[in-house]
């Protein structure tokens, strides 16, 4: 059975789900989860870009006799991107904590002191 381009499309749909989540959800935590979903989608895009059919792990002593290894660069990029996503998620949740402390609510519609 072939998968065709399904992995790419799944990544795209996951990204779209994240965008819809941050556009529709009212709870700040859920919006942060939406951002996390988008970040995961991008990481998965990088990984799927690096896959080669019947490719093996890019570690010599584990890969056996196969000629084809999967591409290593996207994996390295994803490692970096995951750490960056972790850092921003941590900061975003801290800011949400402070918002709850100041505003007493997690509803995004009540953050309206700055306008005009």
């Amino acid at each position: 059975m072939t998968v065709g381009n399904m992995p790419f499309l799944v990544v795209g749909i996951l990204f779209l789900m994240g965008v819809l989540a941050i556009l529709r959800e009212k709870n700040l935590i859920k919006i942060a989860i939406g951002i996390s979903i988008i970040e995961s989608a991008v990481n998965m895009l990088l990984i799927t870009l690096g896959y080669r059919l019947s490719g093996d792990i890019p570690v010599y002593f584990l890969s056996g006799d196969v000629d084809v290894m999967v591409m290593p660069t996207p994996q390295a990029l994803t490692l970096t991107a995951i750490v960056i996503a972790l850092a921003t998620s941590a900061l975003m949740l801290s800011v949400i904590m402070l918002i709850y402390k100041h505003y007493g609510t997690l509803n995004v519609d009540e953050l309206r002191r700055l306008r005009g």
Partner: peptide, 17 residues
């Protein structure tokens, strides 16, 4: 213009999208 600058974060995201 003031209804565009209404301070709702999700509207800002919506304009971006």
């Amino acid at each position: 213009m003031l209804s565009v600058h209404n301070g709702l974060a999700q509207d800002y995201l919506g304009y971006f999208v």
